[in-house]
Design a protein around this nucleic acid. Sequence first.
DNA 1: AGCTAAACTTAGAACTAGATTT
DNA 2: AAATCTAGTTCTAAGTTTAGCT
Length: 867
Amino acid sequence: MEIDSTDLPITNGKRELGLEENNSSNKKLKSENGNSSNGNGNKDVTMTTASMNVSSTTTTTTTVKSEPGLPPTSSPTSTTPKKASPIVKKESTSTPTPPTRKPAVKKQESSSEDSDSSDSSSDSSSEESSSEDDSSEDEKPNKKRPAPSVSKAAPKKPAPSPAKKKLAAKKKVDSSSDSDSSSSDSDSSSDSDSDSSSDSSSSDSDSSSDSDKPKKPVTKVTKKAAATKKTTTTTTTAAKGTSTKTTTTKTTTVKKEVKTEKKKKKGEEEEEEEYRWWEEEEGDDSIKWKTLSHHGPIFPPAYQPHGIKFLYDGKPLALNPEQEEVATFYAQYLETDHVKKADFRKNFFEEFLGVLDKNQKKIVKTLEKCDFSHINEYLKNKKEVRKSRTKEEKDKETKEKKVIQDKYGFAMVDGHKQKVGNYNIEPPGLFLGRGAHPKTGKMKSRIYPSDVTINIGEDEEVPPSPIPGHDWKEVIHNNKVTWLAFWRESVNGGFKYVWLAPSSKIKGIADRKKFETARELKNTIGKIRKAYKANWTSDDNHTKQLGVALYLIDFLALRVGNEKGEDQADTVGCCSLRIEHIKFDSKKQTITLDFLGKDSMRYFNTVEINPGAYKALTEIAKGKKKGEALFDDLTVTQLNNHLKKQMTGLSAKVFRTYNASITLQNELAKMTDEYETVEEKILFYNRCNREVAILCNHQKAPPKNLAEVLGKIDDRILELNDLKDLCRIKLGKTPNSKQKDIKEREEERLKKLIATAIEKKDKDTKDKDVSDDVKASFNRSRSIPDGDDKLKKKIEKYEEQIKKLEIQKTGKDELKTVALGTSKINYLDPRITVAWCKKVGVPVEKIFSKSLRDKFPWSDVDSEYEF
DNA sequence: AGCTAAACTTAGAACTAGATTT
DNA sequence: AAATCTAGTTCTAAGTTTAGCT
């Protein structure tokens, strides 16, 4: 592959955009990567510019780049914080524009090469071919490629018992039946019921109407329920499915353990915990289930009036429960930034006026004179009380929760017990929204059963509505969809669904398929790149825009960018970019993209791009003014349709999945033996993960106490340095600080310790003078040994501690605005991680939390797996 | 061809529980 | 036992994609 020396760096940096050769080889390279691997190190070669810019400008982002790399060993020093700019994450309301955080991102471009040389090869065959064993066929353009065996159930070769066999899983009917029965008991739902009842009362006004209506026609089906049970049994997995319960031995690592534990505890439940659906053949994926039963969603408890006074213009104004509830919604935000937004205040005030009666409206004229502070106090107090519950109370609560969860938290799907993701109906409150949302502060109204549509198996018993007098809006039996219930939300009229959890088979199949599609893209990417590149010089405007947009989506991992309405926050993606979001620097051949993307997260990146793309982009932008769409002759639908023609299942978002996963795989391949301990390996993994997060612009608000935390670390480092100096002095060496300073600081430290000790002490033992004790222990902690050897040892120890702290600080700094979770959950093929863990000997559970392990039970591949 | 509704994935922040320190 | 801190979970908003209609 590429040459060594020089090129190497590039390689890394460049995300394989260029169709060049394959990556497979990467694995081996490691050498310099060491540095490069980490953060930015690499990319720079080429692209430096980009990075530089960024850094200079804003700073934040780049920061990282500084030296991230260092493996544990290297000295952290450099890390000093550059920081500086304020990182504001979501812009504050008022200020529209300047957000601030910079996402870092730099990427380098491989442009040059790709365009040229590589292209030809681009067929990419190159890449894939190498890809692995399995692929024999190589280049076939589209259509599927044999990804490694995996596609199906992934039978891995080695071993395990190839179980995939088919057996009809006979499910035990019983289990299902029980659940049903319980439900029928209905009462079981006592809690809910109670709430509901009260609830209804509060709502009387509206409810009145409802109440009369006795059950709706819910329909046909429902009734049949009784008959049913049998069905369940029958159907079940027609396909094959190892039945399961059992044993299957091997594999699965972690999850298995977990289960076992559970079993032990419970003893009974076993059942489908072990359902190994991923070993079954795939079936018709338009039919999502054959049988489905569940207990419906849970509704939030009714509002409990508190009667705390509300003042208008200093005078009490009585509120009925409904009005009080609205006032209370607002009161909880009194001390947050939300109330600083004009839209929030305006929208809320409209809502509030909306629930006041005529007489009240004569009095209430402006929000400024509304005083919700007493309610706010009440809420704060309530929180305190809750926080100080005793252990018993807490235990009791968790137990009660568990009962609910056991019932409502699971559904039976094709005879298997599956977790439900969100069985709680969202409680009413004020809509917040992210960024500058025009509707922020509007009421999100309370949802009743009469707002909810239930989707359940035709022969199953329909769960009773938990609120008397409010029957379900509708009950349907649609097995072409996966939701269990849905309702419409009042603010935007959007849909809200109750889904199965990520650990469910239904979600798992879709998730695995997503990654398989991305892997397939790996095989076609060369062709696709070559094709879109060719479009850059097209005379046809649409074609040119299509080519450039695809390039941006591929190279910068941008989202596709659908159109948005007036009543939504102004955010964009690739296709909705406007002229003001892009700046050109012809000298450097760089563009700077600066816009608010999903969730109003700022994307700010200066990057050198392929000269051909640069030229095309300038042509596209030419003559357009601020406010106009950059890609005015291209729609998202057109772009996706175009992609679909090149590969089945391909859409814009697949590029993000593909680029994220391939980046992780390439980065992980740079692992060197510098990383020895498990902790160091994890650090390395996180740095690889971080590259992906930067690519995808996954950010988070810096912890509000970051400065404080870092300051504390700095203090401690200084202290250790002083102690080290004291040893050096004794050794006869010159200290790094002036003796006088050290002494002062030490005195200061002692003073502080005494002060805090006293503060604390006087609670229980008031008078006792603790200062002597403190002083004694303080002195003990700084005892300076005698003898040169001992002194030297001590110094070394201090140095070690200092180093550790420096590393910790760097790590915190590196990740202060980068969120690793999103990519781990959504973009990275878990099999890449599993394979790496096996290869380098890191337990998977160090990287995947329990819920991730549950989400990816199908990812147990061997260390040779290649994305 | 374009539009809207519907279904499903992806996202950061808020919240919680558990670990660690004081 | 309380205070912090942190990792993980829950929540629900905000995207993308697809399906169906005019």
